[in-house]
Nucleic acid binder design. Structure first.
Lengths: 233, 233
DNA sequence: AATATTAATATGTAACTACTTAATTTTGTC
DNA sequence: GACAAAATTAAGTAGTTACATATTAATATT
């Protein structure tokens, strides 16, 4: 902030953000031009530009060519979550990771799964059910469908040893992913494998991935009771 | 991609990402130096640098000074969610927004709420319960605590007319937010106001905000049955 | 051989220049 | 006055130069 060392773009970002928080620039307001801010703060326009790009990505301001920069009227809360492979998630909690294959069969994809993939023709896929454990206690029950057309190699993997989760993440990069969270009552298999009573509210993390247009896999990861997803920062 | 127009940093980013997806650069691999990539692609180092920064933020690569750039070994799925004010969320779904204040009282903060704020001394806060509706049907039941020390103005707001959600977002910017998602069984008030039977699994979005060190507010937003959170992209 | 010093290296950052692009405002024409 | 063309504006982008900084590797010192 003092004149000793010159301003970095993060300094400029923090300064502008502080002004927005203190309502020097109020919601809906138009900010000065990048160049004027640069002159005021004593830095180059590129530095202000870099700062503004960040604020724009965070969703604090909106920028338009010629239109200038405006403070967003209704700021949205933007939350980012990292979903690592389950092994790492467990290990990062300081717990011992365990894994157990429940079943692996070739089945016709049911309608809801076809809907997730956005496909209309029924086809066979590998249907894998597995349980991830933390300190020998159930952690996540996963119900996964793998497209054997796009990922034939999965058939040669010994899923008793390596989880489909891990193998896919390491060997099958995707270009698009759909992630959604919702709540579900424990029932049948989810209750059984997560050692809970039917009816317990469980958090579900559903992920579907594609490479180009081709579906790869879709998982329903049902977390054990009490599981919380926490945003970064 | 052709030589006609020069490469933008997003072009470079996409090219590098494509190489990572196609395993030209496999997980764990060290990428060439920025400068060499720049020479290869025929652009400036700064352009490659900007691309790499983005890939690093996405979580696809890891960069270290002198150490160079490495492809992440276990790529994490990074999901970003926008949580707008509830009115806008409802309106964006094309539904009619409704709002109903249930109660607004000054209460002693219970332990779990103190824990969320990270404070140890008990104190009084404004305790607001409200219901958000979409097309006259319950949409989100919110149970909120507002720190009257940091936000005394809330006491002058007519919460029958304007929701605390909206007033706070518009009038009380925060510098830090904690967001977490979990599942909860409907019971008591949540069941009653969301017009569902006790036991139904419900998704809860919990948000706590601070300005500097001062707690502002903490909400438990309990969504109606069937609610799904979908990541951007 | 163990440790401290120095050199080399790749990324990080900022300034300046030059040009592009989208959008708005002004001007000109009918 | 309505509409089209031109000028203006502010952000977007890329290149170049210069230097900072963290980390590793090489070298010298004990």
């Amino acid at each position: 902030m003092n004149g000793q060392t010159r301003l970095s773009w993060t300094d400029v970002r923090d300064e502008i953000r502080a002004r927005i928080l203190s309502r020097t620039y109020a919601p809906g307001d138009k900010l000065p031009r990048d160049e004027d801010i640069a002159i005021e703060l004593g830095c180059a326009r590129t530095t202000v530009h870099r700062a503004m790009q960040d604020l724009s990505q965070i969703g604090l301001v909106e920028r338009k060519r010629k239109g200038g920069t405006h403070v967003m009227t209704d700021p949205v809360t933007r939350a980012t979550f990292d979903i690592p492979i389950t092994r790492r998630e467990v290990e990062q909690r300081g717990s011992k990771y365990g894994y157990q294959l429940i079943s692996s069969t070739l089945d016709d994809t049911p309608m809801p799964v076809m809907a997730r993939f956005g496909i209309h023709k029924p086809c066979q896929m590998l249907h894998v059910k597995a349980l991830h454990l933390a300190d020998n206690r159930p952690y996540i029950f996963e119900d996964r469908w793998v497209n054997t057309r796009s990922t034939p190699d999965i058939l040669n993997v010994d899923l008793e040893v390596e989880s489909a989760n891990e193998w896919l993440v390491r060997n099958k990069p995707y270009s698009r992913v759909d992630v959604r969270f919702y709540a579900m009552n424990a029932q049948g298999e989810s209750a059984k494998y997560l050692s809970t009573t039917a009816g317990t509210a469980l958090l579900v993390i559903e992920r579907t991935t594609w490479i180009g247009q081709d579906p790869i896999t879709s998982v329903q990861a049902v977390a054990a009771p009490g599981y919380q997803l926490t945003a970064l920062n």
